[in-house]
Design a protein around this nucleic acid. Structure first.
Lengths: 195, 195
DNA sequence: GTCTATAACATGATAGAC
DNA sequence: GTCTATCATGTTATAGAC
């Protein structure tokens, strides 16, 4: 059951409820009535804040990207260009995973709900996603300059695959912490299984 | 647009159409009318073959698991226990990816549509999924005996993450072949990025 | 095995009162 | 900013004819 804290503006409550429900049930599987109920209002009232279900979904994913970009930026500031590869990569992997798992449902929505939306809705979010992926492409170019452009792109997709797939099994309250997960993924990515 | 070849029994045509549509649009995003239309019949006629949308979905995923298990079995037969790790792992990764990308939409549904279904529907497919994962757990135990049980489980999740996430970007008609993808993923998994 | 017709209900969205 | 009431449509599922 989704419960939204009451000390927020109406629009924000709707966004929070929508983000969580989109994560849990996907785009088509979530109804405006469910969102309204979780936000403590009636379905019709949603249209005071958003013009359509599509726009609400896009707004959720937009907010999610902002958080991801911010997390990336922050971990950049904490690093020095002279830092070793493993330290730099770990910082960014940890930032990504922290954003996904510890910064509310908005970022998780990007990983779990994006692909559940219809093509035309998805297409409206792609430019924002590209912005984030571009940061990682730049990072990879800096950290792994010897790889070919195509190989670099492939490796980045591998890393994203591991990180984002973890949203489907990682347990926030389990024995493995986000930090440990970040360390394990970074180590696996850099050194493989034969450490 | 989904087009189903006509030389098949009615039930099979429904299954084929459903599998493809579930992959493209998810569980909630796919309607029985769309499935019926793609299969060349009317929506009501589906109920001659399946009792509910749930059962149809479960049947699709069941068929998918059969193909995956069969692919795993086949790649086992082609291997010798004395073969080196990289050769054995590559064979199984290739078998998995071939099943997902080259054996129709049933296997892809397992990767792309499973998480779009409601909890109670998903729960009915979990035992079959577990069967397949168990094969991989056994394989990992044989190939990587020095790792701890928890670490092995984690690494397997990483590998599954990479393989299954590729369903979201891999282009069957692109420059990269399934075999090349399998080689790249296996190499990345075993040796990391610093090859 | 497929059809038509329809039941029973859910959905996104709108209009106007408060 | 939220409500109630409602529209128009879409949804799964059923019943009975062919």
């Amino acid at each position: 059951m989704v419960v939204i804290s009451p000390e927020q503006t109406g629009r924000q409550r709707v966004l929070d409820a929508a983000a969580q429900l989109f994560v849990d049930q996907g785009y088509a599987g979530t109804t405006l009535r469910q969102i309204a109920s979780a936000a403590g209002i009636k379905a019709g009232s949603i249209y005071h804040h958003f013009d359509s279900k599509d726009e609400l979904f896009i707004a959720v994913l937009h907010d999610g990207i902002i958080v991801m970009l911010d997390a990336f930026e922050t971990s950049c500031s904490a690093l020095d260009a002279a830092d070793p590869i493993d330290r730099q990569l770990l910082a960014h992997v940890h930032a990504h995973l922290s954003a996904v798992f510890e910064n509310g449902p908005y970022t998780t929505a990007h990983v779990a709900a994006f692909f559940t939306a219809p093509d035309d809705v998805r297409r409206q979010v792609v430019p924002q996603r590209d912005l984030y992926e571009q940061r990682w492409n730049d990072l990879f170019k800096r950290l792994l300059p010897t790889l070919s452009s195509k190989d670099r792109q492939l490796r980045r997709l591998f890393l994203f695959g591991v990180m984002n797939a973890s949203a489907e099994w990682f347990d926030r309250n389990g024995a493995l912490s986000v930090e440990q997960l970040a360390t394990a993924i970074t180590d696996q990515f850099l050194n493989g299984v034969a450490t």
